[in-house]
């Protein structure tokens, strides 16, 4: 098995250009959490011509709604949620400069096209590996929508956060390529 590639967030185009579907990566730096409810609010703000509570240019969004942290701890269990629920909102954010998404499951054609057109990358973390992933999150701070509880937008500082590249800018798609290799039926 190949060694993981270490990448730093926020992301640059130079890093994104090198990533290919199936690459294992370890992310160090900043990621912002957001799920359905937070995405809806962001898009509502954009539709109203207002400024977002966070500048997403170059950033990675992690689709996660963690469990509550115990007293004195940084964060609770924090594995990825299903990315497809954010498909309706994602292309708009990519157009604004969002560079990376981390979640689980496949993306829509619109999102995949947007990834290619605007140089972004979609990565998957292992769904359900919430206690393991939690270890790579060193700092967490709510920066918007505290009323949403687990769905609030958090700024995370991560070290060696494990993920796998699913959709790259070259049109690579790990779900299609991986399943193709092992499928025994037409």
């Amino acid at each position: 098995m190949t060694e993981p590639i270490r990448i730093t967030a926020p992301l640059t185009d130079a890093v994104i250009e090198k990533l290919k579907a199936g690459d294992k990566v370890l992310i160090t730096g900043v990621m912002y959490t957001a799920r359905d409810a937070a995405h809806k609010r962001l898009i509502d703000l954009l539709n109203a011509g207002k400024e977002l509570p966070v500048d997403l240019r170059g950033q990675i969004v992690y689709y996660v709604g963690p469990t509550p942290e115990k007293p004195g701890e940084v964060i609770g269990s924090a594995g990825p949620t299903t990315s497809g629920r954010m498909d309706a909102y994602t292309p708009r954010l990519i157009e604004l400069g969002l560079k990376g998404m981390v979640g689980k499951g496949a993306r829509s054609k619109e999102v995949r096209d947007s990834i290619i057109a605007h140089k972004a990358v979609y990565m998957a973390a292992v769904g359900g590996a919430a206690a393991l992933i939690r270890r790579s999150i060193k700092k967490a701070e709510i920066i918007a929508y505290e009323d949403l509880g687990p769905e609030a937008i958090r700024r995370l500082e991560v070290v060696d956060f494990p993920a796998i590249v699913v959709n790259d800018i070259h049109g690579g798609d790990l779900f299609l390529q991986g399943v193709e290799k092992f499928r025994r039926v037409s």
Partner: peptide, 16 residues
């Protein structure tokens, strides 16, 4: 590895 950590540290194995 995840469910081993969860069991040992009394953490939810999944955030959901």
């Amino acid at each position: 590895e995840n469910f081993e950590i969860a069991g040992k540290e009394h953490l939810p194995m999944c955030q959901d």
